[in-house]
Design a protein around this nucleic acid. Structure first.
Lengths: 124, 124
DNA sequence: CTGTATCCTTAGCGATACTG
DNA sequence: CAGTATCGCTAAGGATACAG
């Protein structure tokens, strides 16, 4: 499905860099990992993202949809509900994001310890 | 080595979130993947990061060092050279970062295609 | 070569109010 | 419920100049 052309993350002008920035963006990564468990509604995502504003969530979801990472499905009930779900494209990267978040949570203690003991490096 | 306390990435106030933000930061992720190949000097990192400013590189490296993800070694030659290297802590996360970048580069084509065909969703 | 200090512009982001 | 629109602040980040 993907082209033979390969992106270059180290080139700021390359779309590949933009894609990388997209999935590692502040709220996008949280949303993507959330959706591993299955399709979610707006209100679910908002609550589970922990502290995101309406504006940022909307922008994040639109960016992800535009990039082909999630789908948006409107259920015309009353009141209307909307479901967001991962695409196959996204499913190729969620495991790495999950791994990243797990790692951060497991090594929080190490990190804090380093920050505490990190004072100015020893000099005369 | 790590504490039994586990961080929570979804809590903006938790250090675990800060750690996650640190490793996914714009330049930090590029630097960390660069260092997989082995210790690098300032000038190497600056060139390979592709478009980073002195200020941002310095800030990134200081943050990574403070967090215990890289070490900084000064070789007092003339002119002085400085080497940066991964710590064991960092080595637990570089593979995920590498995977993320590989994925972004491999699927750049899909991403661009979606952005092109993504116009306003079809409505009446 | 390896940075630090300062200025200054931009854009990320939250708060608020409003709509289908 | 699921968003959009506008305002305004702050901080990220580039440019430039200078230093150990």
């Amino acid at each position: 499905m993907q082209e033979s052309t390969r992106g270059n993350v180290r080139d700021p002008a390359c779309p590949g860099r933009q894609l990388f920035d997209l999935v590692t963006a502040r709220w996008a990564s949280l949303v993507l990992v959330d959706l591993i468990a299955g399709p979610q509604r707006w209100s679910e995502l908002r609550r589970r993202a922990g502290g995101v504003s309406d504006k940022m969530l909307a922008q994040t979801l639109r960016d992800l949809e535009a990039g082909g990472l999630i789908t948006r499905t409107v259920h015309t009930s009353r009141p209307p509900t909307v479901q967001y779900a991962l695409t196959d494209l996204a499913r190729g990267v969620t495991s790495a994001l999950q791994h990243l978040q797990d790692w951060a949570e497991q090594h929080t203690g190490d990190y804090v310890h380093h920050r505490d003991t990190y004072e100015s490096s020893p000099q005369p």
